[in-house]
Amino acid sequence: MKFDKDTVARVARLARIATGDAERKQLAGELSAIIEWIDTLGEVDTDDVEPMTGVGAMTPTWRPDEVTDGGIADDITANAPACAEGCFVVPKIVE
């Protein structure tokens, strides 16, 4: 299996998703099957092929560098689970 439980634990930590032992075991099976299927890409000859990093040949457009928005901290924090004085409130990280 490409994905053992330790790999799931490592990736889940990177993704900041808590997982239990039983869940990691199930995910290991499911993610291994997906990765093995994805591995068929190895059959494609991609030597000298440029990666496609954007769709179409769009040229980015220029615009004036002006402030057009802002001063709406109350709107932005209105959906926050916790906020105070226009700021988001999070658990203390520095003692």
């Binding site: 994805i38 890409l41 190895g42 494609v44 991609t46 092929v49 440029e50 990666p51 496609m52 990093t53």
Partner: peptide, 14 residues
């Protein structure tokens, strides 16, 4: 091995 490879395959498909 994965992401860059997939982007190259995407070029092939396009």
């Amino acid at each position: 091995a994965y992401y860059l490879k997939a982007q190259k395959v995407r070029t092939r498909i396009a």
